[in-house]
Amino acid sequence: MKTFIGWAYLAALFAFIFAPIAASVVFSFNSDRFPTLPLGHFTTDWYARAFSRPEVWQAIGNSLIVAAATSAIASFIGFATAYTDFRYGFRFKPAYLALALLPPTLPLVILGLAMLAWLSQVGLSGTLTGIIIAHVVLATPFAMAICRLRLSQMDPSLESAAWNLGAGPWTAMRHVILPFCAPAIVSALCLTAAVSFDEFIVAWFVSGLNRTVPVLILEILQGNVDPQINAIGTVVFLTSMSLVIAAQFLIFRKRRHE
């Protein structure tokens, strides 16, 4: 009985957390403009309408460019930082690590304001480059955390062994560290792309006319209730969830054999 209550409680909590995601998918195929119970009939009309709008495709293009650039840069910086933490001890290392991990704890509205002000000073506000710059700041800590997790599973003497056998540091990096970290790096690429793909507050502050998908959703939302958002949202959910699940699969799959 106690276990039953436990399961029921857990199920209720998960239902609350996942209700909006599930509802969005259901409503996107539902004919009512203002969905209620009982539901209307099945339709793909909202998808057809949403994806016939040129600005939606424009936004998708922008989002893909920003997400791809962000994930490449953030994963590189994240890996470099994780490796530095793994390999070296130095003065100010706590400050270095704080710099590496703090950005996501700052409210996005504040980061958005600071970015807008600073990027306009250097002439980058309103550009996709500006959004990429801001997203790399936000996404790097996640890449760093994943790569660090992977490195902590590696025997540190492995690299020294390669050095002792005559490999230079670059050769050891290429033949020992990078192959070992490969799943984590791919995982970081996926996760940082997901972070970028969903971020809309900073992007909204700095984007100007170059809207990404979530910024477009935000602007549609400021008008009227429109189930097209559910259609676009479902596609966005599927994209980011596949990226996150792929990232988790890659990082946790190997562990079982070790």
Partner: peptide
């Protein structure tokens, strides 16, 4: 990692 905006 999913859009909070769409969830809201």
């Amino acid at each position: 990692f999913t859009s909070f905006l769409v969830r809201a």
